[in-house]
Design a protein around this nucleic acid. Structure first.
Lengths: 257, 257
DNA sequence: CCAAAAGTGTTCCGTCTACACCCATGA
DNA sequence: TCATGGGTGTAGACGGAACACTTTTGG
């Protein structure tokens, strides 16, 4: 019976029964030093890097599993997290590496082992505030740390491809949904938000036009000036108007006149 | 062992081993009598309607499975077929109905039966030429036929929701990818393409502006006039320039000047 | 000649783009 | 007072919406 063949392992979820053949990988984007970064795990076994992922409980919603996995590595709850693609090529070779990982854990492998079967993986991407994350490696990992998207370390499996696809989805999202609420601190100068956009899109934007456009959406609220001590005009700080922001996430961005 | 728990049934794929816990549903859109239609199956057991779906072979690419399932019901190969969402709520109740379906087939059900487990399903949508489809019901179905999207019959499971989500994805696609190649005959008047767009979007478009816009993409090629016998000016026929069309599918639509 | 639908042109308006100009700040 | 970067203004290009006018066709 299927139930018996699933291992009652506690890798991810205590002794909960897991859905077989399906995994989930989170591409967690942060923003630091004007760079777009991703939170990655480094495998103990062979020093390769991988996305924080996991499996889905037998009676667990997909979205809940994604949140659970994200929370386990970052400590965060309540972030923007969205499914973007299912990677289902039959040749997604987990196998040759996964053997190493599991041996490190002392898990016995046979040809029919649950872990050796073919997996499809569901990709989610998240946007989180870099400063609020406390990276937690899991048992199979040497390290859990941020890496610049522009110069990724050697990645295992097809995870480099998954990141590329996530970035593509994120760029599309910019066109019709707001971005930034979960990436930036509560209050921020417009220039920071512009840099976020520029970083995601990979190109420069015109300051004047960017300001006008973003303000026209009505999702920003002007706060007091911020004196940084630099020898130039102090910029105004802004915060997102939560009600408007989430409405815009649902319905898409449109100017209201 | 997992292998033994999967049924060697021949519902979908002969006696091939299947991926457990994952199914795949195709939303196959056609276009007929100025209506957007979907190809549906009617269950023998309770007369409810459902999407043509199936399971994935143990060593089969996801995309290949989607094509196989589509081909089985339509006879078509080589159509536009695209993954759009994974439905992973734990409460996706296949169960109460699936029992009926399987009893009709004489398959024995126990609580631990393979078919009774919780499934996630991967949604694909397809755009096909209505006239080229020869609907083939499967063994569990009374009928396989086109139904208007605007007045769907009573649907089983969450399939009405899946169709709604597919339509939404299709509408988004119109903004940055061309549509129509697989929906229309090789040569067609611009008015037909406009009706396709209007049907998908659910609103009227201005004829003049539509023509200008579509022609500006450079994916259409003007052919000879078509005399229909109606008492009005004969429209020019157009065909898609395949090279341009597929380039635009990849890179998105942009006018080239 | 007429109705119907295709084809073409025009005007209006809002948005995007590029760039210029002024303002505040600390050195 | 100077350099730096923030804030604001503006002219031109571009694209979408609405609508008018012309052309072709069969009756």
């Amino acid at each position: 019976m299927l139930n018996q063949s699933s291992p009652s392992n506690d890798l991810q979820t205590g002794s909960v029964q897991l859905l077989p053949a399906v995994s989930l990988d989170n591409v967690i984007f942060g923003f630091h030093h004007n760079e777009l970064t991703v939170l990655l795990l480094q495998a103990k076994s062979n020093q390769g890097w991988m996305l924080p992922g996991g499996f889905i409980g037998k009676e667990e919603d997909l979205d809940s599993a994604a949140v659970r996995i994200l929370t386990a590595r970052t400590g965060l709850t309540n972030v923007f997290l969205q499914q973007f693609y299912v990677f289902g090529s039959a040749k997604r070779n987990r196998k040759e590496h996964l053997g190493d990982v599991l041996q490190t854990l002392g898990i016995e492998l046979t040809a029919e082992s649950w872990f050796m079967q073919r997996f499809i993986t569901i990709g989610y991407y998240a946007l989180v505030n870099y400063d609020q994350v406390i990276p937690h490696p899991d048992e199979t990992s040497l390290a859990c740390s941020w890496q610049a998207v522009r110069e990724l370390p050697p990645m295992l499996f097809d995870h480099e491809h998954i990141i590329a696809k996530a970035l593509h989805a994120l760029r599309l999202q910019l066109n019709y949904q707001p971005v930034g609420y979960t990436l930036l601190p509560k209050e921020f100068p417009l220039k920071s938000l512009q840099t976020v956009y520029e970083t995601i899109l990979g190109r420069k934007l015109d300051r004047s036009n960017f300001n006008r456009k973003l303000l026209s959406y009505g999702i920003l609220e002007k706060k007091e000036k911020h004196y940084s001590g630099a020898s130039h005009k102090a910029p105004f700080l802004y915060s997102f108007r939560e009600d408007m922001y989430f409405k815009a996430l649902e319905n898409g961005l449109e100017k209201d006149f």
